[in-house]
Amino acid sequence: MSAPADRRGWTPLWFGAPAVLGLGLFVVLPFVMALILTFTDQRLVSPAPGAFVGLRNYDRLLSVSALVQNPVRDGVPVYARVRSVTRTKRAYLGYRPLAGFGLGRRRVTILAKDPAFLKALGNTFAFAVMVVPLQCGVALGLALLVNAGLRGQTVFRAVYFSPVVMSMVIVSVVWAFLFDRDLGLINQALGALSCGLIKPIDWLGNPSTAMPAIVIMSAWQGAGFQMLILLAGLQGISRELYDAARIDGASPWQCFWHITVPGLRHTIGFVLVVTTIAALGLFTQVDVMTGGGPRGATATVMFEAVQHGVREGNIAYGATISVVYFALITILILIQQLMQRRRVGEAA
């Protein structure tokens, strides 16, 4: 269907110009500056602009290697300390152990120049995988509840939304209390509910429970945000569709599955994308609750970026982390878009 002449041509430009200007100047430009920064050794407090160092920052961030060691003596396998090798042999200078495993009589250690970053990368993806279904599921449930037409639902909406409004500092103080092993209410409640079977868990001090604790707190804090977006989507589904279905004798479950879900398709998709992106950029919760610990178990990519960039003053390295993170996500998005287009192409 052909559009009138003035729907094409320059009109879109005028409509989009202010946004393009704003985004270009205040998002794209600083990002490009950050990109340039990654090729220097610029520090936050320093007498001169950083010197050009080429790919040194990327090398320090991403290099991996491996070390194969034979046992020091026969009998019980004992190996030389990995660091005594990496700190003395030229080929391994700058590397640290990331993970190790046995291969026959030999020990293989995977080395990386920045194992903390690689670990943070893993943590970040694990976090996203855990929090996105939880947060979006809860948000959908809440949105359905407060859209059911019950009286007082506007107050409930505000209640479910209140964590989003609260300052992160206060939220983390409260949750740190809740998660405390001996004094926290969560352990007390778990103990009471299980009649003492569940022993107190050191939520934030145990590497295996620290990330789940952050997941729970993040989902709790963010659910209200997604709930609001899903509500907007729900409001957009015509009531008449539901009325017609009910006249035809459809059950609530059928209504949900055949009217609500398809009507929310775009909104749910949007919520999933946005929650995933926010999850991958997780910073404040980790910074305030655990400081990346214990032993890097909760460190995320952006946490590492801020630690190195701002706290340590190494803004070039921090920018490198941000750029690599951004590149990874962009590649994922592009792959997803390509797959979607191909699917649409195949369907056509």
């Binding site: 001090g205 610990g293 214990p294 630690q307 340590e312 003053g313 190494n314």
Partner: peptide, 16 residues
């Protein structure tokens, strides 16, 4: 700043 960050990370890891 680098000394402080490095020392703190080491001590917190040692603690854990």
């Amino acid at each position: 700043p680098a000394i402080a960050t490095a020392f703190t990370t080491a001590m917190r890891d040692i603690m854990d």
